[in-house]
Simulated scan of single mutants.
Amino acid sequence: MAIAQPAPAPRSTSRWARWRRWLVPLFGATVLALLLSHAHKVDWRGAWEALQRYPLWLLAGVLAIATASHALYGCFDLVGRRFTQHRLPRLQAWSIGVTSYAFNLNLGSLVGGVGLRARLYAKAGLDQATISQVVALSLATNWLGYGLLAGGLFAAGAVALPAGAPIAPWALRALGVAMVLLVLGYVLACALARGRAWHVRGRAIHLPSVPLALVQLGLATLNWALMGAAMALLLGGDTPYATALAVLMAAAIVGVVMPIPAGLGVLEAVYLALLSGSVPHGRVMGAVLAYRALYYLLPLAGGLVLYAGLSRYAAAHPEAGAVEAVAQVPPVLGA
């Protein structure tokens, strides 16, 4: 089905593009200043001692949670497979999702989440329209779960803002309510669509069914919950699970605004700022460093192995490149 050409960008969009040139660097400088303001206060010796005090069983448990989280993220691409009805094997689609996630965390979303995933799917034989749908559904799944879980935590007041924070507690609660309402609005839109196309700025957007939308929410919410569980274990009993999860999700949105590969410095700055009053800096830094090693770096090694395996499989099965994707709907372009 042909897709109408998008209309010229409205003036409001171009105005936002001009503002964004200044706002993003300003926001990045603010976060960097926040990190530097805490860097000289960090007990680096305490951080190293905290790392050494972690028992092996705890590190193994956190690694198991991280592995489960990465495996669960690979199921996001199975949602795209179900929606587009393409014919790639489930294991291959899942492996592409897991590989792209590992690269996404360490090299940024444009390289891993979009670029690498598109390359692997193209080598597997999917057409560009189907690839766009799968990538869009995966991104939408991740952030829908984030909106539901983070919105609930913010609305419940699980994040204790430090003194002098640029946002008031009531504003954060209002933001949380708005996030939950947006997610519920997505599910409602899926219910109202019933196979129809929603036209946004000249593009046709087809939404999944309500059951598939609920699967999206369930997978992504569980994935974010696992990430929070890993950090809560590393922080120990001093930090409640809800607090550890809420701070992690606050750091995630800061990392999106500041597209630094692996969020270097962002995670540390946010955790130091939000937990400085309740957890010693050395313990916070030890937990963040351990989290980076177990959730970012070790899975990247597994992602490299999967990438090599997928590449060899594509080279050994050139007939797979002739697979015709059964794309019965136009590309999902909203996400």
Rank of each mutant, 00 (worst) to 15 (best):
A2I: 10
I3R: 14
Q5L: 14
S12M: 10
T13W: 14
A17Y: 14
A17D: 06
L23S: 11
V31S: 09
L35P: 00
D43A: 08
W44V: 04
A50S: 15
V62F: 03
I65T: 06
I65M: 08
T67D: 07
A68C: 13
Y73H: 15
G74P: 01
C75V: 13
R81F: 02
H86A: 03
L88G: 00
L88V: 01
A93W: 00
V98A: 15
T99V: 10
S109R: 05
G113Q: 01
G113A: 07
V114A: 14
L116W: 07
R117V: 06
A118G: 13
R119H: 12
L120P: 00
L120M: 11
L126T: 03
Q133P: 03
W143L: 12
L144P: 00
L144H: 00
Y146S: 07
G147R: 09
A150E: 03
A158S: 08
A160P: 02
L161G: 01
P162R: 02
P162Q: 04
P166G: 06
A168Y: 02
P169G: 04
A174V: 14
L175K: 06
L181I: 05
C190T: 06
A191S: 11
G195C: 05
G195F: 03
H206Y: 15
L207S: 02
P208K: 06
L212K: 05
L217H: 02
L219K: 08
L219D: 08
A220H: 04
L226R: 03
M227A: 10
A230V: 03
L234C: 08
A242W: 03
A242P: 04
T243A: 14
L248A: 02
A252V: 12
A252F: 11
P259N: 03
P259D: 06
G265R: 04
Y271V: 04
R283D: 13
V284T: 12
L289A: 14
A293M: 10
L297I: 11
L300V: 08
S311R: 14
H317E: 07
P318Y: 12
A320P: 06
A322I: 05
V323S: 12
V323C: 11
E324Q: 15
Q328V: 09
P331I: 04
P331C: 05
P331N: 03
V332Q: 09
G334S: 13
